[in-house]
Design a protein around this nucleic acid. Sequence first.
DNA 1: ACATTAAGTGATT
DNA 2: AATCACTTAATGT
Length: 209
Amino acid sequence: MENAIQLNEIFEPELLAEIEKKGQYTSVKEGTVIMDFGDIVRVMPLILKGSVKVSRMEEDGKELLLYYINAGETCAMSFTCCMQQQPSEIKAVAEEDVDMLLIPVNVMDEWISRFSTWKSFVMNTIRARFAELLKTIDQVAFQKLDERLINYLHQKEKATGSSLINLSHQQIADELATSRVVISRLLKKLENDKKLLLYRNQIKLLKEL
DNA sequence: ACATTAAGTGATT
DNA sequence: AATCACTTAATGT
């Protein structure tokens, strides 16, 4: 169930000591807004446990889901924003109870030149996120909503560590910026294909989608 | 038993 | 794929 990570498997002892010294350990409850639109970001969160939902505001006030940050990852946006002290373009909400380490911006530069593991860690998260964003852009551009939905369910499964997803069709529709009817139809099709089971406010994923 | 909310469906654009 | 209009099913009071 728990997907907490072992920092000592990724970083060398010297860096771990630095993280211990400079990082601020924080726990927030489910639903907490960690970062909102327009906030000036001064820290870079390193997620230890739980997951964080990152979304973007659209013109009409709707929120479009961008991606999730899972345990062991950091926020690529916060990195690019905080280095330049730019206001956040995104909103981050704790999807479940979250434990994280807040790394102050001012040590980032130093760590990147001092620790190669830190540099590759940061670069990797940015690269991975960028690839993911390109993927969703592709899907949006070609209107492959069914793929996006499957993608979304997978992320959800990974984030919660459970194949039971507790969401209404409406909630999913909101996050993918579409209508409930469309989601219901797509889910129904997936159910007929034996990919999942539908209940009220709950979806059970079956083996491989 | 009744009201409310979630989900399923056909028809239309 | 979106919207409408309507039905059916599940849940709360």
